[in-house]
Design a protein around this nucleic acid. Structure first.
Length: 490
RNA sequence: CGGGGUAUGGCGCAGUCCGGUAGCGCACCUGGUUUGGGACCAGGGGGCCGCAGGUUCGAAUCCUGCUACCCCGACCA
């Protein structure tokens, strides 16, 4: 087979870039740091959106849309929030272009300067809480459970397709509650939705945890996250859910009259996942032959390739392919019959492998004669011959099996690459090997920073299911009562 | 924002040192033979050589100045 990808062992970063481009997921655009998401990549994103959207609605959320532009003054209302985002904001200063007499073309019209500059949203807490102020008067107006699907802009120094782009697509949920307990419950409920989604749809095992003070969202009281491990041993944050306390309510003066008739500040949460999940999907499962998609996310779950020599064979195999398609479609499986005569079977095989289609069926004259079909699995690259009449039962079951096995493979990889470090030497050794490291930490930002500066490893999270366990900090030797998960991260 | 690199048909590159009418592979088009793992033969089309100046009889090539993108670091989902 002609090799179109750099291998993972040769250069992991290059492999990732090659794969994203060759599998037609996305490409770099004419705009610095911004990508074009191509139809195939967007179809996968749409699968993610559809499922998440369903899960959000099921938990009582509704969609809405808030503006792309945010008055600059809104940003300075919440101190930590400004500090967190100020360095990466794109700002609109003018509203008109005019002919450039000197150099030709167009120039920004200096007379069209905005009264107040507009920040292109890096996230929408400020505009949303400014709006919620008008929506909330009484406890009867609560809770507000809103999600929006949107694009956001963060002016990153260095970008990588899907993992970090200047503009990206995401969903951001913003909820308002009567009590602290209710908001905390919401934060954790969404974290659970994210974890379920990652594990059941992306086939991506994740660790649910809470961020350290250093790593938490600017403006949050607590940030929870799901952390996943990529094949190169680096961690990737796949989703975050923030308990915002009353920070934004205070900054935007959002109060409600409680049942007791007192004016109280509203409790808030916000949460999001982005197109970064596409990067997670690629780096978690794919191999040197291309993308490996879990069936639940694959835009095409099955592709059927007819094999033929003569026009008669073409007609017969294609007819059989469509027959099989009609049977599988009844079971909710998405099937594509590739009856193009412009490409040879071998070419098609390689192409669908690159694109990660979970199952490929090939039907040739021999199969017509024997009443069989060749079934090839993308995840294992194995092939077998299956009787035509059993496909209707076999393929749907195979989809579930592949979904489960991809997850189990990723889980096994994570288990094999998660280790406890008891000493600083062990820690240094494990950091070089990659993977998650579970280690005691004295809980101070200073120690966290020191560890990061020496090893480039950061605290990914303190797992929610971690147990109280007395120990000593690997760096300082001071007492610790809980382990944190460390890793080098994307 | 530092350091490095690149810019030549749709894509990947050679040509630049040493100036003389722009070439290769893939892709594309036509015809034929092929078709169970990226077919083969023959013919064909397609390029202000990133942009702007300059030197020269003559510039992809030399000089000056821009711009964009990629990679490596510091910051971030």
């Amino acid at each position: 087979m002609a090799k179109v990808l750099t291998s993972r062992s040769e250069n992991y970063a290059q492999w990732y870039n090659d794969l994203v481009i060759k599998a037609d997921l996305a490409e770099n655009s004419a705009v610095r740091g911004c990508m074009v998401i191509k139809p195939y990549g967007y179809a996968i994103w749409e699968r993610m959106q559809a499922e998440l959207d369903r899960m959000f609605k099921e938990t009582g959320h509704v969609n809405a849309y808030f503006p792309l532009f945010i008055p600059k003054s809104f940003f300075s209302r919440e101190a930590a929030h400004v500090k967190g985002f100020a360095k990466e904001c794109a700002v609109v200063t003018h509203y008109r272009l005019t002919a450039d007499e000197e150099n030709g073309g167009l120039k920004v019209d200096p007379s069209a300067k905005l009264e107040e500059e507009l920040v292109i949203r890096p996230t929408s807490e400020t505009i949303i809480w400014n709006t919620y102020r008008n929506w909330i008067q009484s406890y009867r107006d609560l809770p507000i459970l809103i999600n929006q699907w949107a694009n956001v802009v963060r002016w990153e120094m260095r970008t990588r397709l899907f993992l970090r782009t200047a503009e990206f697509l995401w969903q951001e949920g913003h909820t308002a509650h009567e009590t602290r307990a209710e908001a905390v419950e919401e934060t954790l409920k969404i974290l659970g939705v994210y974890a379920t989604f990652a594990e059941q749809f992306l086939a991506l095992p994740v660790i649910k945890g809470i961020k350290s003070e250093t790593e938490k969202f600017a403006g949050a009281e607590d940030t929870y996250c799901i952390e996943a491990l990529m094949q190169d041993g680096k961690a990737l944050q796949a989703g975050t859910s923030h308990f915002l306390g009353q920070n934004f309510a205070k900054a935007f003066d959002v109060m409600f009259a409680s049942k007791e008739g007192k004016q109280e500040y509203v409790w808030a949460t916000s949460w999001g996942v982005s197109t970064r999940l596409m990067g997670a999907l690629v780096m978690a499962h794919s191999d040197d032959n291309g993308l490996v998609l879990p069936p639940k996310l694959a835009p095409q779950q099955v592709v059927i390739v007819p094999i033929y020599k003569t026009p008669e064979e073409y007609a017969a195999t294609v007819e059989r392919a469509h027959l099989i398609k009609s049977q599988l479609v009844k079971h909710g499986i998405t099937v594509k019959v590739d009856d193009r005569d412009t490409h040879k079977p071998g070419w098609k095989f390689a192409e669908y492998e690159l694109k990660g289609v979970p199952v490929r069926l090939a039907i040739g004259p021999r199969d017509l004669e024997n009443g069989t079909v060749e079934v090839a699995r993308r995840d294992t690259l194995t092939k077998e011959t299956v009787p035509m009449e059993s496909l209707e039962v076999y393929i749907p079951a195979l989809m579930d099996q592949i979904q489960a096995e991809i997850y189990n493979k990723a889980l096994r990889f994570r288990t094999e690459n998660t280790h406890k470090a008891e000493t600083w030497e062990e820690f240094l050794d494990l950091v070089e090997k990659g993977g998650f490291i579970s280690a005691h930490w004295d809980g101070t930002p200073e120690t966290e920073k020191a560890i990061q500066e020496e090893t480039k490893a950061t605290i990914r999270c303190i797992p929610l299911d971690s147990i109280d366990e007395p120990g000593i900090c690997i760096k300082t030797g001071r007492p610790s009562n809980r382990r944190a998960i460390f890793a080098r991260a994307y």
